[in-house]
Write a protein that binds this DNA or RNA. Structure first.
Lengths: 313, 313
DNA sequence: TAAAAATACTCCATAGGTATTTTAT
DNA sequence: ATAAAATACCTATGGAGTATTTTTA
């Protein structure tokens, strides 16, 4: 008979890669954990971990078992969360990931308020790129993601939060800074600065330019693995070219010495959503989180503008 | 600490409605089951079962816990099925439900072949109406459903199997029987026989008539709670009117003394799908089942005809 | 030769059993 | 009066501990 304890040991062992640390994390001794892992392997008739290497890694079938074990564990935890929610106590651990081009601007807006409203919720936040967040959500290593959508992943559920228009960010002394709005033609001869590969904003920016019939945008050769939009902005300010920034980033105006110029209509816009796996059942905490975020977002972003064009991820 | 054993006792107790029978079904004694249920209730701090009535019923929060427990149990079972599938052994229990207007014609086509191909699969089949199947799938009381789609339920996944055209069934001596194909106008003055409320075929038939611009079809006052299309056919044959039958039913021709007349193009058609809950992870058995059914379906139903019009459920 | 995992053995917490009482119908 | 559930108490399986050996880097 499989036990939930064994499944817990399994995921700990995968996480720590050796029996000693995993045992410590589970508050049991190493032989106890060894014994239970072995018993489970015997019961199931498969080898789950390849012990011939250090750190220990799951076998291919072991990996599948581990993924499924995480499902079982989180679904079990959901029983207790169900009860908390029925008591109107929003509580428990919530693992949240945000994309880098959203996290520094969005998190400060709602975090404090959310945590004071629901002090029993233990938020575990990380910053990751879209592809990693999708993977982690699918593997139940994460509860919710905040990213640009639509993703077209049918095992994930998207809850759209707001629509974020893009802006051009250029140096004060540049030609672009003189304009009221930026249209297709205006960008042709300027140097475009982009984030490193893998950042969805990079792709979105390129798509904006492509839609603007700038077939081959002049891409600057400066690219940043850090994924820091702020670094990019500093470079814009020091005359290396222009870039495209999303609305929430633009609002950090005070620190910027460059010019933020809106696009002419239809304004390119990205959709930002809260994304969960289909198996996520904590509807109470989910709705409270969505509600908290929406209440902190500038109201003009909440409605679908008439003259927007949506840029997919 | 919640245990899987306790969750198993929980669902048994709900199913049997009393401790004695539930205990028997779990191969333990009544005090053992009583004790574990009580322990779980104490641990969770909620009353799961209302013992003041007979048979015992879950409290509202208990119902939620039970639904979630079924999820945990089936997800745990999936671990073992995962291993079986990795060994190319398609096995385990599969709870299947079919709508009444499909079951007598579809099941005989694939059942024997499927069971001989995968003898280790224990099929548990029931006949239910669409709404009950949807509910049971959502509550994890069922693994797969065979019904007319699309359902528009986003917690369920539909795997379309084939498109089933509708036919008119009329008595040999009726005016309709003289026709090559039936068009809009031909049905106006005839008496339409329908299945009882709740059968999706009833709604589909009415929709066909509505699409044919027969605003108010002459509905016969004979309706059948049994949901038996066969009874309906007998009535057609004895001159009580005409009815609409799906393609697979039509193929049981040998026993029929009435006339089956095709619709003129575009032919009204329903989509038949295999439907599972999003949490269903046994992809191996699923694909084998889909494959088995498709291989037994007349090939002309597998392709989307050019001149069909699809009738939703 | 360390460090890590498996083995050997002991212990005790608790799931489960039997007998009985209490509670509802 | 009868059936069902809870309580009391006992048993024993197996999870977890300590000490030790075996294995791998």
């Amino acid at each position: 008979m499989i036990t939930l304890t064994q499944l817990g040991y399994l995921v700990a062992l995968e996480r720590y890669g050796n029996f000693r640390q995993a045992a410590k994390a589970c508050y049991v001794t190493q032989p106890t954990l060894s014994m239970q892992i072995k018993k489970l392997e015997d019961d199931l008739g498969v080898v789950i971990f390849d012990r011939s290497i250090q750190p220990i890694k799951p076998t291919p079938i072991g990996q599948k078992i581990l993924d499924q074990s995480r499902v079982v564990i989180s679904q079990t935890a959901a029983i207790e969360e169900l009860i908390s929610e029925a008591r109107d106590e929003i509580s428990g651990e919530l693992r949240l990931a945000v994309i880098p081009t959203l996290s520094p601007y969005l998190l400060p807006l709602f975090l404090a308020k959310f945590q004071s409203s629901y002090p029993k919720v233990q938020l575990i936040i990380e910053e990751s790129r879209t592809s990693d967040i999708i993977e982690a959500l699918k593997r139940n290593k994460l509860d919710v993601g905040l990213l640009a959508t639509p993703l077209g992943e049918d095992s994930l559920v998207e809850h759209p939060l707001f629509n974020e228009p893009f802006y051009v960010y250029a140096a004060k002394q540049s030609a672009l800074a003189k304009l009221e709005t930026v249209s297709d033609q205006d960008l042709k001869n300027e140097n475009l600065l982009l984030l490193a590969e893998g950042h969805c904003l990079r792709e979105q920016t390129l798509r904006v330019c492509r839609q603007s019939r700038i077939k081959n945008p002049k891409v600057g050769d400066l690219q940043f693995a850090s994924g820091s939009l702020e670094t990019l902005c500093r470079l814009v300010e020091t005359g290396h070219g222009y870039t495209v920034i999303p609305d929430l980033a633009r609002r950090w105006e005070s620190r910027r010495s460059g010019s933020v110029i809106p696009f002419s209509t239809p304004i390119p816009t990205r959709e930002v959503s809260l994304v969960v796996h289909h198996s996520f059942v904590r509807s109470g905490i989910l709705s409270k989180l969505i509600q908290s975020i929406k209440s902190c977002i500038p109201s003009e972003l909440l409605k679908n503008g008439l003259s927007q064009r949506t840029i997919g991820i």
